[in-house]
Design a protein around this nucleic acid. Structure first.
Length: 597
RNA sequence: GCCCCCAUAGUUCAAGGGAUAGAACAAUAGUUUCCUAAACUGUAGAUACUGGUUCGAGUCCAGUUGGGGGUACCA
């Protein structure tokens, strides 16, 4: 990064000298030189034209000449239209590689050095059904964003707020009670979350039947939905739960335990974890005091029936209820309470919520209400709003059975990885345990990369057939590149070609060697950008580019077989760094890379 | 109705207001006596429409069309 700062300073000096004018930092725009042109960094000269009172090419030429004279690192320059392309010396790039080769984690900011604490809430499942593809996107994003923020030097707390109470939970409980005949995960051999999910579906089926029957007897749909015995019973169960009824609470605890056991398996398979787990059953009453306080201060309003509201019409939004007329809280109340609790307990600088974009309005309101209540830290709440995952046949709907189950999908990916590997037969001498470890890495790598390479905020398409592809812009492509480099490095070591100390900077680099080095140079900025944008896609696309660039380099350069010892040393060194960088980048995505595949 | 988001090759994705819009898959033509061919190299193919701002627009603004989401004393 230092080179850019240096160049910017020099440009400012040169402009001052040539045109006797001061320029601000914003006017000095450096960008990477596009591949089709000769050069490393490009200065956009359009902003200087008014000062220079010259045409773009003339101005660029003049600035280029001065820079070349004054900066040792610049070997030459060229001008295309208003773009001044600067080429650095090969020696600069070799020295750069030498310098970063001494850093084991080049690009990663040392842990917890930024002085900031950031909380990332993600996953937040309901305990009435198993995790599906939508949850996978949430979990992978949350985990990865947390890792990326860590790599930017922040202290990060990963938290999960489990939705373990409410009418929807009572539905599966009630169905189990009615039709479960004491089934347990043990007795059925089913994962706990799957078992409970089945009863949630069962409730819905029976409920629909009842509605149909009521409508046949002349009720309207709304009346039928409201008056059905099943929903009445579920409501009563929720009241009993809240009243502390022992039997209901025991059933609730038991069924939730089943679900958690099932979730743990899925979380483990996805490779995600949490520093702290919150349960809604313990937090759902939070926020009430804050709302009442807001009412007292005249910030909120109360209607005749006693319900408390925020009037957001002045901000272009609606009225939003914060406490029901019976004094109970809504989701928003809880979020106000938990946010307050977290910011004060952990002294947070920032809090990111990984939640789907259907909640955009909710978070808009949350931030606004907190702000109105006088909590300035509301500005530090960030809703990482991600798009839905769609299937070729349309949206996933749990009740219509068009969901892609998380466990099934992972299993399928790993199985395909295994089949492909066996076909290629490269791992035949590996132990079964090691090989199955590799299959796991590849299957999950394919899935994780597929999901994370897409900009989080965009709706994405998941086509089960295509997504299982392991060629091209995929996780396995990146993993393969890593494995191949590792193989080359093993061969180098066996041949006794270990690189001790610095590579001489007196060598000439080929275009590909320069390009690879420049890509490595971009890694720190990539991590910074991914952090700023909360976007794993930035990292994913970067490691893909890097792997692709390496494969091209590899295709027409010998590494171990290169006879010139200095060139060989450089190539071994750059190969090593590419492997390290791929590995670090993949780690930020929660993706492992194998030594062989 | 009102509010928000999105629209790029046949398909799935890229492109911090900058140069000739990149990849991959699919299609098609090639590359293994040589460090892993899950690789590499060709060919063909795209900014929904109409205006505007700018030296410069896929990117910013307005409108049109098409898609998604939200708008509950649900979570």
């Amino acid at each position: 990064m230092e080179i850019i700062t240096l160049l910017k300073d020099k440009v400012a000096e040169v402009i001052k000298e040539l045109y006797a004018a001061e320029v601000n930092d914003k006017m000095i725009q450096f960008q990477k030189t596009r591949k089709e042109f000769e050069g490393d960094f490009t200065l956009v000269v359009f902003p200087f034209l008014k000062i220079a009172k010259k045409g773009p090419e003339q101005a660029a030429q003049a600035i280029g000449e001065e820079l070349e004279k004054n900066v040792d690192e610049i070997s030459n320059f060229n001008v295309v239209k208003g773009f001044l392309n600067l080429k650095l010396t090969d020696a600069y790039w070799v020295d750069f590689l030498n310098a970063i080769s001494k850093q084991e984690k080049f690009g990663i900011v040392a842990p917890e050095t930024s002085g900031k604490t950031i909380m990332v809430e993600y996953s937040s499942p309901n305990t009435n059904k198993p995790l599906h593809l939508g949850h996978i996107r949430n979990n992978l994003l949350g985990y990865s964003v947390a890792e990326i923020l860590k790599a930017n030097g922040h202290k990060v707390l990963k938290v999960n707020l489990v939705n373990d109470r409410g009418i929807h939970i009572c539905k599966s409980m009630l169905a189990w009670q009615k039709w479960g005949s004491n089934e347990t995960p043990e007795s059925t051999g089913l994962k706990g979350d799957k078992l409970v999910g089945n009863y949630y579906v069962r409730f819905d089926q029976e409920y629909k039947k009842e509605i149909a029957a009521l409508m046949a007897s002349g009720k309207t749909e709304d009346e039928a939905k409201d008056q059905a015995n099943l929903i009445q019973e579920a409501r009563e169960m929720l009241r009993n739960w809240e009243a502390g009824d022992i039997e209901v609470n025991e059933l609730w605890a038991t069924m939730n335990r089943w679900v958690y056991k099932g979730f743990d398996v899925t979380y483990k398979a996805m490779g995600v974890d949490f520093d702290k787990i919150y349960y809604e059953s313990e937090t759902y009453k939070l926020g009430k005091a804050i709302v009442l306080d807001g009412l007292e201060k005249g910030i909120l309003i109360q209607k005749e029936d006693g319900s408390i509201w925020a009037d957001l019409t002045a901000d272009g939004l609606d009225h939003k209820i914060l406490l029901r007329s019976d004094g109970t809280s809504v989701y928003m109340t809880q979020d106000i309470g938990t946010a307050h609790q977290r910011f004060s307990e952990f002294n947070l600088h920032h809090h990111t919520y990984v939640v789907g974009n259907e909640q955009n309005y909710h978070f808009q309101v949350l931030k606004l209400v907190l702000k109105k209540l006088g909590h300035d830290w509301s500005d530090n709440i960030n809703h990482l709003s991600y798009g839905m995952v769609e299937l070729p046949e349309g949206k996933m709907k749990s009740r219509e059975g068009t969901v892609v189950d998380a466990d099934d999908l992972i299993e399928e990916m790993v199985l395909t990885a295994k089949e492909t590997s066996l076909e290629l037969g490269k791992l035949e001498d590996m132990s079964d345990a090691d090989a199955s470890n590799v299959f796991n890495m590849i299957g999950l790598g394919a899935l994780k990369y597929f999901i994370l390479k897409v900009d989080p905020k965009k709706t994405m398409m998941f086509n089960p057939q295509e997504s299982i592809d392991f060629n091209g812009n995929t996780g396995p492509f990146i993993q393969y590149t890593h494995a191949r480099i590792k193989s080359v490095l093993r061969k180098a070591e066996n041949a006794g070609f270990t690189v001790e100390g610095d590579v001489t900077n007196a060598i000439m680099l080929s275009k590909k060697e320069q390009d690879l080095t420049k890509l490595i140079f971009d890694f720190p900025e990539t991590i910074a950008e991914a952090g700023r944008n909360h976007s794993p896609a930035v990292v994913a696309n970067y490691i893909y580019d890097l792997a692709k660039e390496y494969n091209q380099f590899y295709h027409d350069h010998s590494v171990v077989k290169e006879e010139n010892a200095d060139k060989r040393a450089f190539r071994i060194q750059i190969s090593k760094k590419v492997a390290d960088t791929i590995k670090l980048g993949a780690m930020l995505l929660g993706m492992e890379v194998p030594e062989r595949m």
